[in-house]
Amino acid sequence: MAGSPSRLFDLAVIGGGVNGCGIARDAADRGAEIRTRCRVSRLARTDGEWRIEAGGETFRARAVVSATGPAVLKLLGLADQPAVNSMWLVRGSHIVVPKLFDHSFAYFFQLPDERILFAIPYERDFTLIGTTDVDHEGRLDEVTASAEEVAYLCEGASRFFTTPVTPADVVWTFSGVRPLIGDGSGRPEAATRGYTLEMSDENEGPALLSVFGGKLTTYRQLAQHAVDKLKERVPSIDSGGWTDRSALPGGDLPVGSAEVKIAELTARYPFLERNWADRLLHAYGTTAWTILGDAASLNDCGEHLGQGLTQCEVDYLMAQEWACSKDDILWRRTKLGLHMSSVETAHLSEYLKEKAIA
């Protein structure tokens, strides 16, 4: 969400995700103004428009979309807007362990409690194991895997692999909160992963569209439905469907072309090791060429911060994908935190401090 008090925007989208950098980059490339780390403190209808207080500023909009996931009810409360739907917050946690197998296929297992467990090749040297379904009652900015969840995943994986998996093997965990639509079943695995769009009444004034439920794999269909619904209240919004024909930034790669493109990347930049080129292509697609630019040697990429992470990549992430911390870079974007040493991580932290001062 972005704006200026002197400018009236057709639409303000308030979101709460941390994994949508490609989506945000695409929106910015199409003319949206993006503000990250801009917490909404209040929103109210005033003089036929929305006034939104966020990050110490006031923004104006003809309509608001709340795509805040598990915080959707909280935002409705800030707007003094009642909710028709109820939410069921369920935490899903994953563990990462040293790789358990040497092929590129994933495993899906069914546990005695009838839940599905998966084990997926991850970041070249690891295996990703997930996931759990646990009621989440804590804060939404402190979502972590519990010891019980880690033990559950380790015990589940150990049923199927020759080498037992123990909590001591876990090198990293991550968790998220699923915003499920309450169905009263008490069984998270049975609850729908679908979504519902809740629009405020026209008699109440400017539109507030709230997204209940949904998931990453259906976000484009959800977004198209949301725009179609908003068109009824904000005629200036262009609802022409196009996302099914448009790739996200860097995603304009023919299916099955990864090996060819890796070869092209290493031919253009001979200083790249094969694993480095593979990581760049899978992380950025064709944007890898933009990041490396005219570099003819490793020195042309600026300071080498370790594990193939160079100054030019960090600078790109800061300038184009709103990264501002080592966690943004090492975990949310590149997953190089799994590979970098404590010395290399400290080196990156120092570089980011210098950039912030500059």
Score class of each variant (00 low, 15 high):
Q311I: 06
W242D: 12
E313F: 02
G308N: 07
T290A: 03
W289S: 11
S246M: 14
R274C: 02
L248W: 03
A296Y: 04
C324N: 10
S325M: 03
L309F: 04
A263E: 15
Q311F: 06
F271L: 05
E273W: 06
W276R: 13
S325C: 06
W331N: 01
A295T: 03
T243C: 09
H282C: 06
L298G: 09
G251R: 14
G293N: 11
C301V: 03
G251C: 12
E259R: 13
A296T: 14
I262T: 05
L265N: 04
Y269S: 07
L281H: 09
W331Q: 06
A295W: 01
E273Y: 09
Q320P: 00
G256A: 08
M318R: 13
L253T: 09
A277G: 08
A258M: 10
E321N: 03
L248Y: 04
L309N: 01
E303N: 08
M318C: 15
N275P: 05
H304Q: 09
G293P: 07
S297P: 04
D327S: 10
L265S: 04
D244K: 14
D328I: 00
A267P: 00
D315N: 12
N299F: 08
I329R: 02
R245S: 09
V260C: 03
A295P: 03
D315L: 06
A267C: 12
L280H: 05
D244S: 14
R274T: 11
